[in-house]
């Protein structure tokens, strides 16, 4: 099968095969395999899930069921810069929804999507553990706290 996921497709597939080979006889291995697959590809497209199904013998429908059950698995590609807007209680009462709305407007996309050029993807998450800085967003490993909506364009301009 072919997985169209950039230049290192074969290398990724080999890595995934190795993980499946090592894991497949362990109980509850599917979630670990899917984690690795998402690490490699950034998301879990139909081709990757079919590959996992072929190799493990786990039905595709069951895999899809697991992928859609857990919020950390994604069916859509992620951007080079993954924006996570904290919607935990503290951030929420400090106006995180306004930050999220402004991000959606600036990037012209919805939560869960990725910009056409693949640069940014936008997700909402629950508490990142930095309530003192509320409202907080994460861009990859960078943290931005005490934001107000008008600061959003400036933050995005750094990338």
């Amino acid at each position: 099968m072919s997985v169209e996921c950039g230049c290192a497709a074969d290398e990724k597939l080999e890595k995934l095969s190795a993980v499946i080979e090592a894991e497949k006889d362990n109980p509850g291995s599917l979630i670990r395999i899917l984690h690795e697959a998402q690490e490699l590809y950034g998301y879990l497209p139909v081709e990757v899930q079919q590959f996992v199904s072929e190799k493990t013998g786990i039905p595709l429908a069951e895999i899809y069921g697991v992928v859609t059950f857990y919020a950390q698995f994604s069916l859509k590609p992620k951007g080079q810069y993954k924006i996570n807007v904290c919607l935990g209680t503290a951030c929420y009462v400090k106006g995180a929804d306004g930050i999220l709305e402004r991000l959606k407007k600036e990037l012209n996309m919805d939560v869960g999507d990725c910009t056409a050029d693949g640069k940014f993807s936008l997700d909402a998450c629950r508490c990142v553990g930095a309530c003192g800085l509320a409202p907080v967003i994460m861009i990859n490993d960078d943290c931005y706290g005490r934001l107000v909506p008008d600061e959003v364009p400036g933050v995005l301009a750094k990338y």
Binding site: P59, L60, A61, E62, Y64, G65, T68, F69
Partner: peptide
């Protein structure tokens, strides 16, 4: 579908 028939085309989706 899964256990008796092993056809396995349906599953619970989302949560």
């Amino acid at each position: 579908c899964q256990k008796v028939q092993t056809v396995s085309v349906i599953e619970t989706i989302n949560r």
